[in-house]
Structures are given as C-alpha cells and as structure tokens.
C-alpha cells in the first residue's frame, strides 16, 4: 500500500485516495474547434510510461482535494506531490 503525502493533510495511506489518471493531459478549451485526432488524443490516448510520471489522485476519504503526484510507475517511489492549482515543474 502506497503512502501518499496529501499537500493539505499530510502522509496518508493509499486506501484514502482514488486514482485519476495522467496529470499532464490538458482539457481542450470549451467551444474551441478541435480535430478528431486531437480530441481522440485527449479522451483516449495515453502513454503507458515506465518511470517518473505525474498523475492525479483525489483524497477521497480525506479533504476531497484532487492532487498531483509524481510517482515512478515501476518502483512506486513518490517524489513530489502538488496541490491542484500548483503547476507541474
């Protein structure tokens, strides 16, 4: 079980969180023209990366905030966590 540091609550066990996918995907702006290909990339196409990866988790059974977590998908090492409004650097 992972140990995730919620930027709002501190270290908590994985079972308080739910996983929310790739944190680097940006939703296209509302009302903007977009090609089929670009839309498909947004909705469906994800890289299955081995190594460092920024992902979203929601602290569901805690503060309910969505947070950004940098995790190594192979080793599960967590390097950094950010609040929703903090930019990935």
């Amino acid at each position: 079980m992972l140990h995730i540091k919620c930027p709002h609550c501190g270290m908590r066990s994985q079972n308080e969180f739910s996983y929310g996918g790739d944190a680097t995907v940006k939703r296209p702006e509302l009302g903007k023209e977009i090609s089929d290909q670009d839309w498909d990339n947004f909705v469906y196409n994800r890289k299955s990366l081995r190594g460092k990866h920024w992902e979203l988790w929601q602290h569901l059974s805690g503060c309910r905030q969505w947070i950004k977590v940098q995790r190594d998908t192979a080793t599960h090492e967590i390097f950094k966590t950010l609040k929703a409004n903090e930019e990935i650097s």
């Binding site: 739910s18 979203l56 929601q58 905030q65 969505w66 929703a84």
Partner: peptide, 13 residues
Amino acid sequence: LSHLEYYLQLVWP
C-alpha cells in the same frame, strides 16, 4: 460529486 470536484479544482478553477 468527484466529477464536479475534478472540473472545479483542476479544469476550471
């Protein structure tokens, strides 16, 4: 609820 929180916190803060 999670869906609404997702858009409010991450997409349209």
